[in-house]
């Protein structure tokens, strides 16, 4: 089972003089799915880039298996921790099998070239993401959903214990979003891979996460299982938006129903007595 641990201590990240993430100390539960949620510009993507050592800390540190991730050789880190950035670039004309094969880069050295083990890892990644039949197609020609699955396949081919994903469902329709999240859940269940994903959709995050990190203004304001973290008050504070939280009829996890200024039913019978942040 997966023993690789990832935690941060007093992590502060920024660009130039602007601090984006300020003093975050968290432990990512190994072998579980962690979702990072929060409003726009709360620093969640920057936090993920910091976790993946794509951005060096201004203060504090990220620890992989107890060692400062910036002190470890980058290639060695890449065999244990993989990252799918928000907008990766596919070179023009590249085929799916070539792209996914590049996930094997950290396992190859100056002298160790392509081996049958690499073919095996690529085939397994393609099979797991349902992209095997696309193997020889150029990535340019794929639909958004297919392309996202191919990128995830590349991350899977890297065969790491920890997989970080920055908004893996952006630009996908709801069916493809669920498909991608199911894929991550499968991976977590079958391999014990630790998954950390930044997700916009709070409800899907609640459904798929074992552990939720809620961020606001560069800080983690709440963390824990979704059922413990997500209540009306927390969500209202987090997003500065009144809402109601009900039980997701499908999964039994919290379901956030936003309350805007329009289209709110006026009848008193519909408003539960406990609604603390209903329409005024």
């Amino acid at each position: 089972m997966n023993e690789t641990t990832l935690h941060t201590e007093g992590l502060r990240l920024g660009y130039g003089s602007r601090t984006v993430v300020d003093g975050v100390s968290v432990r990512i539960p190994p072998g579980r799915i962690t979702m990072v949620v929060g409003p726009n510009a709360c620093g969640k993507s920057t936090f993920l880039r910091g976790l993946a050592r794509l951005l060096g800390p201004v203060a504090g540190a990220v620890y992989l298996d107890g060692k400062d991730i910036c002190s470890l050789p980058s290639r060695q880190v890449a065999t244990r921790l993989g990252i799918l950035p928000q907008s990766p670039i596919a070179p023009e004309g590249i085929t799916v099998v070539d792209l996914v094969g590049r996930g094997r880069h950290p396992h190859q050295g100056w002298f160790r070239q392509w081996t049958p083990a690499d073919d095996e890892a690529v085939a397994a990644a393609l099979a797991a993401t349902g992209t095997l039949e696309l193997a020889e197609r150029p990535v340019d020609e794929l639909s958004g959903g297919q392309r996202q699955r191919v990128w995830i396949a590349m991350a899977l081919a890297q065969r790491t214990d920890i997989l970080l994903l920055d908004e893996p469902t952006t630009y996908l329709d709801v069916a493809h979003q669920v498909e991608v999240l199911d894929l991550l859940a499968d991976l977590n269940a079958s391999e014990g891979t630790t998954v950390v994903a930044v997700l916009h959709d709070l409800n899907l995050a609640c459904r798929y996460a074992d552990h939720l990190l809620a961020m606001k203004d560069g800080r983690v304001v709440a963390e824990g299982p979704p059922a413990d973290v997500v209540d009306e008050r927390t969500v209202t504070e987090l997003f500065a938006m009144p809402c109601r939280v009900i039980e997701d009829p499908v999964s039994g996890t919290p379901l956030v129903v936003p309350v805007g200024r329009h289209h709110v039913r006026k009848t008193a019978a519909d408003a539960p007595a406990s609604a603390s942040s209903g329409p005024r």
């Binding site: 880039r49 993946a52 050592r53 794509l54 050789p73 980058s74 290639r75 060695q76 880190v77 890449a78 065999t79 993989g82 990252i83 799918l84 950035p85 907008s87 990766p88 670039i89 596919a90 070179p91 792209l99 590049r102 996930g103 880069h105 950290p106 100056w110 890297q158």
Partner: peptide
Amino acid sequence: FLLGRSLRALQLGDDSARGLGVD
């Protein structure tokens, strides 16, 4: 030719390349 092997990672963008262990 030796350095060129990391072109395969660099082509995917800096974040992906660093994720694959390429400085």
